[in-house]
Design a protein around this nucleic acid. Structure first.
Lengths: 237, 237
DNA sequence: CAGCATAATACTGTATCCATAATTATGAAT
DNA sequence: ATTCATAATTATGGATACAGTATTATGCTG
């Protein structure tokens, strides 16, 4: 996606990145209308680069452009999550497989170091920290896979997933479980068991989906309204 | 990534689509500079929607935007093909698996009809026709998989692959081989053998990569000109 | 009182214009 | 003659202005 980032990035890229952060931080909530001229004013720029940035975000699936109707932050339905997580499981599983085969001893040390950091964040109970380091670990595996396009696709999908609230880790026991899964994945990589690493990573992702579903169910059950927050909203197709 | 295509599409979308076609037709060759104002003049529009269209194409990886340097049609290196084809094999394999499980009898009939059409194109020796129907068949499987995001990712990658010359089918025996592979895939689907369908589709994609590699090798060996049309240019990272 | 139509307002989409940066060509100096 | 520096030209990036369309609100009519 990013053009050869030598030379200073264009303004529309900066803007796109800032908007991404605001979307990920849920400052711009899913379904919310994106007010072009308000944002342009706020950033002290004209609408032109802002509109270009929105085109990019639309291509990434983070916002939905409705011709003559404006721009809205994409809402993910449960259906979308059911589609994306298995896909991620497939892709990240493959990453783990490739990475296991290609990791040098030095790479392995880096992975161990990252995992130790993860252990520490978990011990501290720092959920945000855990989330970040977890991301770093997965990212490292993607780079070790040596397949730029695989990494690219995963990155794109992960951005979309970040549209949902990420605090499934706050679920009782989920953080500990996630950590445990990571331990097993790392162990498989350490022992150069690529097939196991793939299977464990695959399961890890599906486990993440299950946790999210459980949380959504919990959030929904207190008020047993039949047609409540169900995901009949379309993704961005 | 197309925004909700209800309502008339915006101008920048029309332009993006026309540019895509020109790129796929290799009228705009990989590595070629995209002259903004020449195109704007040619289409009788201003540069603004054209620039927005280029942002979209850049997100898709079809062109590369170099800040302050202009826009160039993406060149794929052999390395990129080595990355993308295995990835496509993985994804389309999964598609075949899911489609096999979910296809209704009516769906199966549609697939059979498509395959018959493929057989006829092959019999006629119509390579372009074969290419098109082949595309339709794969597309149909993606839809049957029922996973919109899986389909989306495959579509995106296929667009990128269309940057390369597509006449690997002109290779001696390749068309016949491709047809044979399709026969086996369809047979597996017909017998509801999802695992086989997945494996066969996976092999089908890798087989396509091998054919392309063979063609490139052949194109390179006859004329040993040192700086010929080789693709050492970077993809679009 | 309710529903429909019309008008006004506001936002998207496109064009034109201006400034800045990069590349190329020309000229001078070694 | 070749190389480096400077100037000019050209294209990209950003801003502002304008037009068209959709939505909403208000008023009128049934």
């Amino acid at each position: 996606m990013s053009p050869t980032s030598i030379a200073q990035p264009a303004l529309y890229q900066e803007v796109a990145e800032r908007l991404r952060q605001r979307i990920f931080a849920h400052e711009l909530q899913p379904g919310a209308w994106v007010d072009e001229q308000a944002l342009a004013e706020q950033y002290g720029i004209s609408r032109t680069p802002l509109r270009e940035a929105l085109k990019v975000l639309a291509s990434e699936g983070l916002v939905t452009l409705k011709p003559r109707r404006g721009c809205y932050v994409t809402e993910l339905a449960e259906r979308d999550l059911d589609d994306i997580f298995p896909l991620m499981a497939l892709l990240e599983g493959r990453c783990a497989f490739e990475a296991t085969q290609k990791a040098s001893p030095a790479d392995l040390k880096r992975l161990e170091a990252l995992h130790d950091k993860l252990e520490r964040q978990a011990a501290k109970g720092d959920i945000n920290g855990f989330f970040e380091v977890n991301h770093d670990f997965h990212q490292a595996l993607q780079e070790l896979s040596g397949n730029r396009w695989l990494k690219q696709v995963i990155d794109d999908l992960r951005k979309v997933l970040k549209l949902t609230r990420r605090d499934s880790l706050r679920l009782e026991g989920r953080l500990k479980q996630s950590l445990e899964e990571h331990r097993h994945i790392l162990a498989a990589i350490r022992e150069r068991d690529a097939a196991s690493a793939e299977a464990l990573m695959h399961a890890h992702l599906l486990s993440g989906r299950a946790a999210l579903a459980k949380m959504h169910a919990a959030a929904l059950s207190p008020s047993p309204s039949p047609a409540s927050g169900r995901g009949e909203r379309i993704g961005h197709a």
